[in-house]
C-alpha cells in the first residue's frame, strides 16, 4: 500500500508529466492561455489517460504478450487511444450533454496528445502491475491537469506584464514553465 502511495506522489509531483517528462507540451502551451480551456482539457486528458492506460495494459498482457506480437504495441496502442477517444466522446454526448459542452472540443485533440500514448507505453516499460497502472495513470494525468490549471492562472497574469514584444506569448510562457519546473524539483526531497 505504501508503495502505491509513493508511486502516486512521484507521478503526481516529482516526476510530473509536463515539467519533468516533457509529455503533452503541445497542448500545455496551446490551451493554457485561458482558465476555462485549461480545466476542460485537463479533465478530458484525465479521463482518457486513465481509461486508455488500463485498457492498453490489459491488451498488452492478455493479447499481445501471449500471442508473441509485442512489437505491434505502438500500432495497437495508438488505435486503442483513438478508439477510446471516440467512444468516450459518444458516451459523454449521450449521457451528459452539459459535460460534452465543456469537454467536447478537446476530445478529438487528445488522440495526438503524446501524454496519452506516453503513459500507456510507460506502464509497459516500467513493468507495472494492474493496480500500479491504475495509480500511475490516474495520478500522472492529475499531475497534468494540476500543472495546466496552475499555469493558466500564471499566463493570465502575464498578459498584464510589460513583456518585450518578441517574448510575448510562447517564449515568455516557456520561461515561466522553466521556473515552474525548478519549483517542482523541490518536491524531490518529499520522498
Amino acid at each position: 500500500m505504501s508503495d502505491l502511495l509513493t508511486l502516486a506522489f512521484t507521478s503526481f509531483l516529482v516526476q510530473n508529466i509536463i515539467l519533468s517528462q516533457f509529455l503533452g507540451i503541445c497542448s500545455f502551451l496551446g490551451v493554457s492561455n485561458k482558465r476555462s480551456k485549461a480545466l476542460g482539457m485537463g479533465l478530458a486528458v484525465f479521463f482518457v489517460i486513465t481509461l486508455s492506460g488500463i485498457v492498453t495494459w490489459l491488451i498488452y498482457y492478455k493479447i499481445l504478450e501471449p500471442g508473441g506480437i509485442t512489437f505491434m504495441r505502438t500500432i495497437v496502442f495508438i488505435l486503442v487511444v483513438a478508439a477510446m477517444v471516440q467512444i468516450l466522446e459518444m458516451a459523454i454526448k449521450k449521457f451528459s450533454p452539459l459535460l460534452y459542452g465543456s469537454l467536447g472540443v478537446y476530445l478529438p485533440l487528445i488522440t495526438t496528445n503524446c501524454a496519452v500514448l506516453g503513459v500507456a507505453l510507460l506502464n509497459i516499460q516500467n513493468n507495472f502491475t494492474l493496480s500500479e497502472t491504475v495509480v500511475f495513470s490516474a495520478f500522472t494525468s492529475l499531475g497534468y491537469t494540476a500543472v495546466i490549471i496552475i499555469f493558466s492562472y500564471i499566463r493570465e497574469q502575464m498578459l498584464k506584464a510589460p513583456i518585450p514584444e518578441g517574448f510575448k506569448g510562447i517564449p515568455s510562457g516557456l520561461i515561466a514553465a522553466s521556473i515552474m519546473a525548478l519549483l517542482f524539483k523541490g518536491f524531490v526531497g518529499l520522498i
Binding site: 516533457f22 520561461i175 519546473a181 525548478l182
Partner: peptide, 8 residues
C-alpha cells in the same frame, strides 16, 4: 541539462 533548462 535539467528539465527546467530545456524550457528556459
Amino acid at each position: 541539462v535539467q528539465p527546467a533548462g530545456a524550457f528556459l
